[in-house]
């Protein structure tokens, strides 16, 4: 067993991190099956390198980095399919709306009686990178960690967090009986 963590430690690490990683991946992707497959694949790849990395100590950040990349990569690979139907009647191609096309329309917001539903729906309206940024921030990661996980600069991470908070606050304002932030 020398040279790597014991099997029990790795089992415990998977059990401890799986809820967080799966919930995070499901929030980035619409399809929970895709999310579960990605998390499974990321675990497999990290566990295959268990002799190289100290997974119980550093594994969560590595896992979230791998999950983020895989989710965004999957989304971007599928994106052109959406672009085909985003052509104006006059034939000009319009820029893609960076928000999730599966997000609730504004008039559907009233249907979210529970604030929790509203948060889930509001998160889905954010572009994936903003969503990931805000979620990682809410989980307590530092701006530097978020920058490393998302492969962006810390200042860019800060900008994305600010935009995401503002957009989500505006989305939730009607549910909370508040004015949307200006």
């Amino acid at each position: 067993m020398a040279g790597g963590p014991a099997s029990d430690d790795l089992d415990a690490w998977v059990l401890a991190t799986a809820p967080r990683a799966v919930a995070y991946a499901r929030s980035l992707l619409k399809n929970p099956d895709d999310a579960d497959d990605i998390v499974q694949d990321c675990y497999c790849r990290l566990l295959a390198k268990a002799g190289t990395y100290d997974l119980p100590r550093d594994g969560l950040k590595l896992l979230l980095t791998a999950v983020t990349n895989a989710c965004i990569n999957l989304r971007t690979r599928r994106r052109p399919v959406f672009r085909l139907v985003r052509t104006d009647p006059d034939g000009t191609e319009q820029a893609d709306d960076p928000a999730d096309p599966g997000a609730a329309a504004p008039d559907e917001r009233l249907a979210h009686r529970e604030l929790a539903d509203g948060i889930a729906a509001g998160l889905r309206t954010l572009p994936p990178q903003q969503r990931a940024d805000l979620e990682l921030k809410s989980l307590g990661h530092t701006q530097q960690d978020i920058a490393e996980i998302l492969s962006i600069t810390p200042s860019n991470a800060g900008v994305l967090i600010h935009r995401a908070r503002h957009a989500l606050a505006a989305y939730l304002a009607p549910l909370m009986g508040e004015e949307a932030p200006q």
């Binding site: 967080r20 919930a23 995070y24 805000l134 809410s138 989980l139 908070r165 989500l168």
Partner: peptide, 12 residues
């Protein structure tokens, strides 16, 4: 907002 998102992720 972070707190609200955190509670949502905890529930998920």
């Amino acid at each position: 907002i972070d707190d609200a998102v955190r509670r949502h992720l905890d529930a998920e």
